[in-house]
Structures are given as structure tokens and as C-alpha cells.
Design a protein around this nucleic acid. Structure first.
Lengths: 351, 351
DNA sequence: CTGAAAGCGCTAACAT
DNA sequence: ATGTTAGCGCTTTCAG
């Protein structure tokens, strides 16, 4: 019969002789139309189950993958979320902040789980909204997640006036237009300072650069607590330049009136560095100086002594950011979320 | 003069009344064809300098950005590099390894500098090449950077047989098809063990899970050094499960014959955790036990005592990976690069 | 130097 | 349930 001869053509299951790069190619091989192949591969229900499976098998056999660019162009949906790290107020051109990196890791996990791809950009704000609009306006992403607002809160507000699906990590400010997920930084700073004061510290300092609003707010909280106790807190603006943090700290401790006995730091990283420098100077912790970190990175429990710190819920934050961006993309409405920090008492304070 | 009257038409610089979303829209506004707008915006030389500038000004004024999907589809060039983290041999579903995260940060910097966008994917190898081909075959990226090979060396080889622009970080194996940038792990392991032996350690252990080839090779190097000195080295397969590392280490030290006096670790993270656990057990470092880390993360110098470790050149590695992927994309040929590690002696060994 | 025309590979009406 | 028809918005010959 002619039919069986036809059937025999199927025996070449291994050596694909014809190049099948496009839907049309596969359609030809399968003897159907491109439209059907498209539907079959998308797993749509309006295709006969067995043709669908046959086509999927064929696709596998020929190693065919639909071109995403074409698909995205046509469907006006990219399946990609842009994750942007604004490298603003700190002049370093490098992504190295372990907090951001940790948040990024969690975001990657959550986005993958939600079926999104992640496009990472580092951006250097320049006063105009251009650094952000280059990403929102490119048609390359369905939404944007900002890891930190730096000092760009106004610019971001301006962008969301015409670009909705955007969620930032960071500090929430009254009257702010864009949606933010973050920690109550003022409370965090206050918790840290209050704890230090309760543990007997009197000569307080805050270590951290207040160029970004988050840190500035932590300082405000710490200062409020100090003032409530009738104390002064000295602000020492340590920049996060990795290796160069040591010298900055040494200089800070060498200053004439620098015999601090309680230090609130803007991050665990600064705290760890301070711990190290103080240790080298022969100061006892928490005997001579008490320190509170910020973030509660996984590493905080590994320092010696283990670091007392203000915990931010990074994993939870990532989850919430992804939930919100998805909702925004679906056209729903969402509001900001401020999460309360918790004080984790370990051994760099006298508890 | 008529000229000044003409100039007055430009006063509506603020209120774009017509929506200009596409090249064609802008072309209409500019009174030229879409082709010319495309060329002007691409900065091509074959456009009259002043029409080009006029069009660019118009684009800026209307906030117009060409749709990347369309551009990429047409030009068959995405300007995107895929960065893939294979979450293979370790079952954790999470990106948290600080080494990978650090490498990722450097890659982001280098790629941005080279004008590429970065698409991050975490992948869970499943025995087939599918986890990788989903990315290489999607038409979404111009090339792929793999952060670690996990135990997928053969699969990767298979993929590069038909997909050239791929560079992996990791261990180089003789006869391997794909291009790798990485550290001489065997040498690294040997340096660590030799140093420990030279410092008087005799009861050696290697802490780390050898599921990935990199770690297995480090163990091989350490073992070779031990055997050359007539010593035995005990392999303790610590998994990188963040918080759960403590208990694993405690169990390791509680084992009957576990009075190690020299420990080679597979990463700084394990070393830091071990440091912490030993500290809690009241063991002196380096007095009772000496430890050598691996990676030399920025944090290694901050432990107390500061960590003796085997340094991998992460920043340099990222630079090399990006150089190689760019060359491969251009159709050039490249070979693997094995970088020598260096021993950084700090204070967890008796030097 | 610029315009017109032809797709890149796919999806989504609209038919049938 | 499947085929047909039209584009998505851009780039790039090919003319002029």
C-alpha cells in the first residue's frame, strides 16, 4: 500500500536531514499549518491532543525551539523582569554589596519560580530619568524591580507616572508615588540605638554613608533614640568601598573624641569591618565597645563574637516584590509594604 | 527674517500631543521615512548630519525608544548574554553561594561595560541537555556564560558541539570541548595542604562536598600533598545548606576520630563556619586547629583570626570570561584559561 | 543621502 | 480542530 510506504518515512527518528529552524519548517514536516504548530507547542487546549503530542515529539526530535524574539514581538509580552541596581550615591562602579547580592539571589529564585526571566542591569543615575527609562521604555521587560532607590526617589516617581509595573526595594516615604517594599528603617535604627543604650552605652556613634535615603532614615531613628535618652550620637560617614573600609574605620577611631562605647552600623558589612579593626586595636567587644549591625546576613552569626544586628527579611521581601510586580503587570493595584525589622541579639552587645 | 519665524515653531518642546511609539510615528513627525529614522537613531554615517541630529532631538523630545524586540528580531542580534547558574549537585534551590554571587557581580560590571545586557537564569540540570538548550536555543541571547559546571561537563560538551558562544567558569579537564575559565583547583588544594603540613599539622581533613568537579579536584590536590608527606587526609562532605552547615560541622567534630589539627576547606564560607563552630567548642585557632579557606572573598580578611586562604582571581576571571565570549560571538577562536591560585597566609595557620 | 519594499519568526483573529 | 491572513516594529537591501 502507498500508505505504509509513507509511514516508513518516519523511521529516521535520529538523523534530522532537513533543517527545521522555524515554525513553518516544523509545520511542513508535520504536515500541518504554522498556526497549529504554534498552538500545539504553547500547549493550548484547542488542539487535538494527539496532533499536539505528535508535534511536540517532532519538535523534540528536531531540537526545535521557537524564536523568543519573534514570539515576544508578536505577543507583546516578554516574560522578562528587569532588575536594576542603581549605583548612585556611592561612586563605586561595582556591584559588591552583599545585601544587594543576597536580595538579588532571592529575586532570581522567586522570579524563576513565577516563570519569569531576569534581566540584570546596573545603572548609574545621572540626574535625568534616562538611566531608568532606558530600561522601562525599551520594550524588553514586562516590569522593573529596583534594588534600592539610592537618592533617586523623585526620578522614580516621575517614571512611574507613565510606567506602572515598577517596584522598588527601599525606604517608604510619605506621599511617594512608586511602590516600595522594604524595612522600617527608622524603627531599625531606633531599635539598634535603644538596645545599645539599654546595654549601658553612652558615647554613641552611627557608622554609614547617608547618601541613600535608607541609611539616612536609620540614622534618624538612631538619633531619635539617643535624644530621647538625652545622649548625642556622632555620625561617621563610612563609604562602602570594600577594601578601603579598613582605613576609614581606623581614621574614625583615631579621631580625638572617638572613644565610642556603642556603635550603630548601617550594615553588617560595616559592622564586620569595625569588629575586625577594633579587634586589631585590642579593644574588647562587647566589653569596651558594643556594636549592632544591620541586615542580618547569613554571615552575621559567624563573626566572633557573633553579631547583634537588626534583621531585614530579605527572602520575604523578595517574595513580596515579585508578588506585587506580577499583580501590577496584570493591571491590578498594589500599595507599598513596610516590614518591621527585628533586633537579633547575639554577642557584640552586653544584652 | 523668515528664519526666526521658522524657529518659533519649535516652542512646543514640552507637550507632545501625538503619541509617538513607533519608528513610523516619529518618521511622520519628522517628515522623513522610517528607514531614515532607523539609520539616524542608530547613528549611522550615511545620514545627513543635521537630519540625524534633528531626528535624535525629536526622539528625545517625545521620549521615544525603539522597541528592542522588533530590533532584535530583525537584526538577529540580541545584545544579551545569558548567565546561567546550574544548581546541580547541591539540592538547594537557592542562589546563595557568595562566591557565585561575587562572580556574578563582576560579570555584570564587565558585561555592562562591554555594552551587553545580562539575562540571569538559574537552572536545575536534569540529566538531559535541556536545561541549557532552553537558553542557548531560545534566540534570546547572543552567548552564554555558565557560572560553574556542576557535574554537567559532558552535557555542556554536547551542547557546544552545535552552540559555539559558551564559556564556563570552573575546572578545566583534559579533552574537554567547551571553553572554561577557572582556577587550577588541584594546585589550590595542594597549596593549602602543603602549607598546613609545613605548619605542623598532621591529622588532616578536607571539608567539602565533592559533587561538583571543582571541589573534587581540590580534594585530589590536597590528598596528593598529604600522601607525598606520608599523611592521610579525611574527607568530610559538608553540604552548602547555609544555616544547616553548623550542625554538619558539629557532627563532623564529634566523630570518634575527629581530632583534626589541620583543615582544608572547599570554600571560605565553610572555613568561616568551621571557625565559628570550633570557637564555640573552645578550640584555639591556630593553636589547636589550623584552617585554610578557599576563594579569598573580601570577607576572608575580616574573620577573627583573619583567614588564611587560597585566592581565586574572581575579578580577573570575569574579565577573561567576557573577553572570550565576545570573541566567540565574533566568530573567533579561543581556548580555555587556567589561572594559578595563590596562597594568602593570614592568621588561621601558624605560618 | 533618502524612500520604498520586503521580510525577521511568530501569534491571534477570523474563517472554515 | 485546523488553515489562512495579517501584522508586531524594526532593519536592510535596493532603487533613485
Amino acid at each position: 500500500m502507498e500508505d505504509s510506504d509513507l509511514g516508513n518515512d518516519d523511521t529516521d527518528t535520529s538523523g534530522p536531514d532537513v533543517e527545521v529552524r522555524t515554525l513553518a519548517d516544523l509545520a511542513r514536516v508535520a504536515g500541518v499549518s504554522a498556526g497549529t504548530v504554534s498552538r500545539a507547542l504553547a500547549g493550548k487546549s484547542l488542539v487535538n491532543a494527539e496532533t499536539r503530542e505528535r508535534i511536540q515529539a517532532l519538535a523534540r526530535q528536531y531540537g526545535f525551539r521557537p524564536n523568543q524574539m519573534a514570539s515576544k514581538l508578536r505577543s507583546r509580552r516578554t516574560g522578562v523582569i528587569g532588575v536594576v541596581i542603581p549605583l548612585g550615591h556611592e561612586k563605586r562602579q561595582q556591584i559588591s554589596d552583599p545585601f544587594f547580592l543576597t536580595l538579588l539571589g532571592h529575586l532570581a529564585d522567586q522570579l524563576t519560580e513565577a516563570g519569569y526571566d531576569l534581566m540584570l542591569s546596573r545603572a548609574i543615575p545621572d540626574g535625568t530619568p534616562d538611566w531608568l527609562e532606558r530600561i522601562t521604555g525599551s520594550g524588553m521587560v514586562d516590569g522593573v524591580l529596583l534594588i534600592g532607590q539610592s537618592d533617586q526617589s523623585e526620578v522614580i516617581d516621575q517614571v512611574v507616572s507613565h510606567y506602572r509595573p515598577l517596584v522598588a526595594w527601599g525606604n517608604h516615604r510619605e506621599g511617594q508615588k512608586h511602590i516600595v517594599v522594604g524595612t522600617d528603617n527608622e524603627l531599625g535604627g531606633r531599635l539598634a540605638a535603644e538596645h545599645l543604650i539599654a546595654c549601658g552605652a553612652r558615647r554613641l556613634a552611627f557608622f554609614g554613608d547617608t547618601g541613600g535615603i535608607e541609611i539616612a532614615t536609620r540614622l534618624r531613628g538612631a538619633r531619635a533614640a539617643a535624644e530621647a535618652a538625652g545622649l548625642h550620637i556622632t555620625h561617621v560617614p563610612i563609604k562602602l568601598a570594600d577594601a578601603e573600609m579598613g582605613p576609614q574605620l581606623e581614621a574614625a577611631f583615631a579621631a580625638p573624641d572617638a572613644d565610642y562605647d556603642g556603635i550603630v552600623t548601617a550594615s553588617d558589612l560595616i559592622a564586620m569591618s569595625a569588629l575586625h579593626v577594633l579587634h586589631e586595636m585590642g579593644r574588647k567587644i562587647p566589653g569596651d565597645v558594643q556594636i549592632v549591625g544591620f541586615d542580618d546576613l547569613p554571615l552575621a552569626r559567624l563573626t566572633s563574637p557573633p553579631l547583634t544586628t537588626v534583621r531585614q527579611e530579605i527572602g520575604q521581601g523578595a517574595k513580596v516584590m515579585v508578588e506585587k510586580i506580577r499583580a501590577l503587570i496584570e493591571g491590578e493595584t498594589r500599595i507599598s509594604k513596610v516590614m518591621p525589622p527585628t533586633l537579633i541579639v547575639r554577642e557584640t552587645t552586653r544584652s
